[in-house]
Each structure stands twice: as C-alpha cells, then as structure tokens.
Design a protein around this nucleic acid. Structure first.
Lengths: 96, 96
DNA sequence: TTGACAGGCAAGTGACTACTTGCCTACGGT
DNA sequence: ACCGTAGGCAAGTAGTCACTTGCCTGTCAA
C-alpha cells in the first residue's frame, strides 16, 4: 500500500484529484485532455498514467477496465487519516 | 510560503508533528532526543533542524527564541486546506 | 573570562522522483 | 482482416530532496 502523503505531495496529482472530484469516472485520455486544456499542464500520457498509478497505490483512485477504456474513480477516504492524525485547532498563544 | 503537502510528505516530519502535538514547546535538542529515544530515529541535529525549517515554512510550526533556546510550537491549522479541498465521502459504487 | 552548551550556515553527496522516449499489446469499428 | 485508438512496459535522464560534514555564532554558568 502506497503512501497517501506522498501521493498528494505532487501538484499535478492534486489537480488530477480536483478534476476527478469535479467529474468522476474519466479515462486516461480524458484526464490528459482536461489537464492540458483547463489547467495548462503539458504532461504526456505516460506522465499522467504514472501519476494515476501512484494515486491508485495510495487508495485515492480506483480503476476499472471497460473494453479498451480504463475508467478512473476517486476515493477521498484515505485522506481522512490526515485530519485524524493532527486535529486542527489554534496554536498555543504565549501571553506574557 | 512553503508547501503544506510537501511538508507532511516526509515520515520524519510527521513524527515531529506527532511529538509536538503530544508535548508542545520543545527545543531542537529535546526533539532530537525524543526522536532517537522514542521513535528509534538516528537523525542528526542538522537533519531535524532542516525538517523544522520546512515545517515552519509551511506554517505548521512556529518558533521563538528564548535565550539560547529555540522553542517550537505546533500549528495544525494549515492542514485544514487538505480536508477542505477534497471532502471525504464514499466513492461511487457501480451497481449494474 | 573561559569553557561548555544550543543552535546556525553552507557545501557536498546519494537516493529518490517526475518525466520523457521508444516500442509493444489489446480492443473496436469498417 | 486491417487500421486506428486506448493504454502498457520498460530504460534513461534531469532535477529535487534528505542527510551528512565541517566550521562558525551566540548564550549561560563557573
């Protein structure tokens, strides 16, 4: 099982998650097209494919083959461990 | 301003955050000692110092000089943007 | 004031990582 | 059957990152 933290450490992978959150169940080519069109990224197909592999290892994306297409589905649940590990609250204020 | 995602991408930095969450306001040497004793990490002082710098750039740690000591305080608030960006909910289930 | 302690600065190194390039496999339509 | 499309499989490369090493600065106690 891959590292969720390392998965979201890359900005391109974060944009892929954004894109899948906005429109779930996209193929590799759809994602490539949208990354170049909407986000101005000039990533090759292989680059995006490798990013999706990392996201899949982290459990953030699931994939399913349909004919000659590979459909990618987002799963944000692994991100919950981040919020669970360090509860968000204001820092200690030192008032002398 | 540094990258919060890159800051938590490293396991040592995550352990530092754990340690600061359990006991806030530690010096560099205290953190070094606890990392080696409690977590079995053999990090040098400079390594931990550089990690703290990354965490500070990301806004996750604030530091304050007191005499010859440097006190480190945790601030988990920058982590909220992760939960905000991708709301955690179950993935789409395909029931044919 | 001198030595010990807490920390900083900066260059160098090895490992990892994002990305590319080139070629190959599989499925579908005509 | 054949061509085009969607995707996979490496190997190679350039850049980043974690970590070390060596030396320097500042602070407190005796």
């Amino acid at each position: 099982m891959g590292d969720v933290y390392k998965a979201v450490a890359d900005e391109t992978r974060r944009i892929i998650l954004d894109e899948l959150l906005e429109r779930d169940e996209q193929t590799l080519f759809e994602l490539c097209t949208r990354l170049t069109m909407k986000h101005g990224l000039s990533s090759t197909r292989q680059a995006v494919s490798q990013h999706l592999e990392v996201l899949e290892d982290a459990g953030l994306v699931h994939s399913e083959r349909r004919g000659r297409y590979k459909i990618h589905t987002i799963d944000t649940r692994p991100l919950a461990q981040i919020a669970d590990r360090w509860p968000v609250r204001p820092p200690r204020e030192d008032i002398p």
